[in-house]
Amino acid sequence: MIRYPKPLKAGGTIGITAPSSGVPEALHPILAGGIEQFKKRGFKVEVGKTPWTNEKTASAEASIRAAELNYMLQDSNIETIIPPWGGEILMEILPLIQWDQIQPKWILGYSDTSTLLFAITVITGIATAHGTNLVDLRSNEWDETTKKFMDVLTGTEGDTIIQSSSEKYQSEWNHDKQPNPYVYELDTPTSWKTLNGKPLNVDGRLLGGCIDTLQNLVGTPYANIKSFREKYVKNEKILWYLENCEMSATDFYRSLLQLHYAGWFEQSSGIIFGRTSAGEEVNGFSTFDAMERLSQMTGLPIIYDADIGHVPPQITLVNGAKAEVKVENGLASVKMELK
């Protein structure tokens, strides 16, 4: 049975720690801006030391990052944890996490943060929230898609949360952009797609994240999908969501084959792939070819160009939650039940 964290209360405390990359000094203003927005909304914010430092792709040595994260995971006064953003080598702290002492609380993020979210849900059965990063919440207003993360953080077991596909997405990143009124420059029409172009309705227990980092957990104690199924979602199907940050089409396909051969897609209902600016074709082989071949091998329906990942905005997906996803004519709805 999936365990859901207690809701973030009005005036509650949010912990900010960087288990992967910290924020370099030149970008400290965007970190401070994200922190300030939660204070403006009446929340207390406890900021660790790691968000403010970064060297060789990590905020600090693995032991320091793990110690700060363990403290925030175990402190009952901290109700929610939001890292500043992702990074590259979060997985090196996984052996240092005190898994049996984690107190259920919402943890929010994506990119390399999804490495942590995924492992926590798979190992402990505690639901986690795959959604926006702290630095992208530095505006006075949050766009309609992004702001649904608050429905999750303030949600409680038994709640139903409904989200819709965005109207537009951001085609390019610009951290120097001043919010007007949002952090994102939403400039390109959104269209969720299915492989065959037909309407699709699929449901299951959500699980996923950034495939660039998750693929490296295959065969480790932090991604025992068979055990997760037996302990927490027995006799239920998994609805996977994955997003490609940097991989070419062939890298992407090899990663999908690895997950398939490892049995991840057994007892599953479908796969949702996020929008990506990656996926460069290799000798005519495209990410569409990769998805099409995976669907043929697994028999699973596939949705792609979804509001997930490194091409914002993104909906917030709860690892472990029951979900029903409908796609028709480029529009999508996501119904999540926290039970």
Rank of each mutant, 00 (worst) to 15 (best):
E266G: 05
L256D: 00
C245N: 12
A223G: 11
E246P: 00
W264S: 01
S268P: 08
M247T: 09
W264T: 00
L214E: 03
D212R: 09
K231N: 13
W192E: 00
K198L: 12
N216F: 15
Q215I: 10
L242Y: 10
L259Y: 05
W264V: 00
C245D: 11
W264N: 06
A223T: 09
K234C: 04
K226R: 14
D212P: 09
W192V: 10
S191P: 02
G204Y: 01
F252Y: 15
T220K: 05
A249Y: 04
A249C: 09
L195Q: 02
L214F: 06
W240I: 07
F265V: 09
E246R: 13
R205G: 06
N235S: 12
V202D: 00
K231M: 01
G263K: 03
L259C: 11
P199M: 04
K198D: 07
S191H: 11
E246M: 09
L259E: 01
K237S: 06
I225D: 01
L217Y: 08
F252D: 05
Y241H: 01
E230N: 14
Q267T: 10
D203C: 04
F265W: 03
A249L: 05
G204F: 05
A262G: 06
E246K: 13
N216H: 15
Q267C: 11
G219V: 14
T250Y: 14
D203A: 11
V233R: 07
D203R: 15
Y222E: 04
G204Q: 04
Y232N: 02
Y241R: 01
W264K: 00
N201G: 00
Y222P: 01
H260N: 07
Y241Q: 00
L242F: 15
E230I: 08
K198E: 14
G219N: 13
S248C: 12
Q267D: 15
C210S: 15
Y232A: 02
L217I: 05
N216Y: 15
C210D: 10
L256G: 03
G219E: 08
S191M: 10
I225Q: 06
K198T: 10
G209T: 06
C210E: 15
E243H: 15
Y261H: 07
L200D: 03
P221N: 05
D203G: 05
L257S: 07
F265M: 02
R229P: 11
K234I: 02
E236S: 13
C245W: 11
L259V: 02
R229M: 09
S268L: 00
T213Q: 12
N224G: 04
N196H: 12
T194N: 01
T220Y: 13
H260E: 12
V202N: 00
K237P: 01
C245F: 12
R254W: 13
N196S: 08
F265C: 08
H260D: 03
I238D: 00
L239W: 06
P189A: 08
K231I: 01
A223K: 04
T250G: 07
